[in-house]
Structure formats: structure tokens, C-alpha cells
Simulated assay, not measured.
Amino acid sequence: MADARAGAGTVTGPMVRAWIEKSAEVLAENRKYLTELDSPIGDSDHGNNMDRGYKAVVEKLPEGDDIGAMLKSVAMSLISKVGGAAGPLYGTMFLDGSKPLIGKTVVSGEELAQFFADAINGVKKRGRSDVGMKTMLDALAPASDAFRAEFAKDGDMPASLKAAAAAAKQGMEATIPMQAQRGRASYLGERSIGHQDPGATSSYLILQAFSDAVEEAAK
């Protein structure tokens, strides 16, 4: 079993497992909130879909501390259980990010930064989208940038993930004045302005769960 604390500049298998389990808890707690956000600009199902998907994620999570294997399992469960665009997008995010991490029980800050980069590139390609289009990328991309910048300062993993979560929150809030350019919300045109993107919101919640899980493990 890998040391759950390892070093201040690493993430371990137990930390990733705790992140996944905490994400499931947070998404269950925010199921109604995410659905309310999705109601005016989507299919009113994002909260239910993400909650259902992460329940399946936890049930199917493999034993052991192989970080890449766990993240790949998350991808497969989300692709099979989450409806709409969220399943393929989140599935691609975790699948593409997991590939270099297969077999690893501890990952460095540099490897985690690459995970974020690979995950974001996967979402961009799958969704044919980019930052500024009122999607989950508006939370993920700033988080990735903030993580990389903070980790470069002193290599502190909890501080870097905290910075990433804070940037994701700002990115999420920045979707409110945007006009949607992808997904069902794009059909509304200017009427999509004034609504916070549900995908950016669930992305923020997942990243905040990551920060909380690592911070708790590092105590």
C-alpha cells in the first residue's frame, strides 16, 4: 500500500481514491443545484447524470493504488452511465489524462500538470470547443494554469491544488456573462447569457474535492 501522505510535492494512490470518493459525495450533495443550473439552458439533467455517474464510478473503482487504472475506471463508468454530452466529455477527460499514469502509485507535480493538460486537450477535441465558449473548459483551463504556476513556486501539492480550485471557481463564475457556443445552450443564443454553466460548475466541484482530499491527507 502506498503511503497516503508521501511527499508534499506528490499525489498518491490513496489520495486519488479519496478524491474520487469525495467527488461522488459532493456531486450527490449538489445534485439539485446542478440540475437547477441546467434547467434554463440545458436538459435539466446534469445534476442527476453526474450523481448517477459517480455512484457507478465508486462502485466500479478497482482495488489497489494504481492511479492510472483508477482514473481509467472513472472514465469508463462515466462514459457508460452519464447521459448527454457530459458522459463523453468527462470520460474523455479522465481517459486521456490517465494514459501516462497507468502503473503509477505516486505521481509528481509535473506528471499531474501533464494529466491536466492531456485531459483538457481531450475535452477540446471531443467537444470541438475552447475556453470562452461557456463550457467546462472555462473552469478546467484556468485551474490547470494556476496549478502549474503555483507548483513551480515551491512544489507544494496542497497549495497548488488549492490554487487550481480557486481558479476553477473564478472560471466557473466567469461563464455567467458569456453566450454559449456549444451544446444545447448554444441554441438559446443571447438568452444563454446570465446563466452559470453547469459543466463548469461540476468541474469546479470535482477540482475542489481534489484539493480537499489532498489537503486532508497531508495533515
Results as ranks from 00 to 15, higher is better:
T92C: 02
T92P: 00
T92V: 09
M93G: 10
M93N: 06
D96T: 09
D96R: 15
G97F: 02
S98F: 04
K99D: 04
P100D: 01
K104P: 02
K104G: 00
K104T: 00
K104C: 00
T105S: 13
V106E: 15
V107T: 04
S108F: 04
G109L: 10
E111D: 12
E111G: 09
E111H: 05
L112H: 05
A113I: 01
Q114G: 13
F115I: 05
A117I: 01
A117S: 12
D118G: 00
D118V: 00
D118M: 01
A119Y: 03
A119S: 14
I120K: 04
I120R: 01
I120A: 09
N121R: 13
N121P: 05
N121W: 03
G122Q: 08
G122P: 03
V123D: 13
V123K: 09
K124V: 03
K124H: 08
K125P: 00
K125R: 15
K125S: 10
K125F: 05
R126D: 10
R126Y: 03
G127W: 00
R128H: 14
S129V: 07
D130T: 14
V131R: 13
V131K: 13
G132I: 10
G132V: 05
G132R: 12
K134D: 03
K134P: 00
M136Y: 07
L137D: 11
L137N: 08
L137P: 12
L137W: 04
A139L: 06
A143Y: 08
D145E: 15
A146V: 12
A146G: 08
A146W: 05
F147H: 01
R148D: 10
R148H: 12
R148E: 14
A149S: 14
F151D: 05
F151V: 12
F151L: 07
K153I: 07
K153W: 01
K153A: 08
K153Y: 02
D154P: 00
G155V: 11
G155Y: 07
D156P: 11
D156F: 01
M157T: 07
P158H: 02
A159G: 11
S160K: 06
A163T: 07
A164E: 01
A166G: 07
A166V: 10
A166I: 13
A167R: 07
A167K: 08
K169N: 09
K169F: 08
Q170L: 13
Q170H: 10
G171C: 05
G171Q: 12
G171L: 06
M172V: 04
M172E: 12
A174E: 14
A174N: 14
T175W: 01
T175E: 09
T175A: 03
I176T: 14
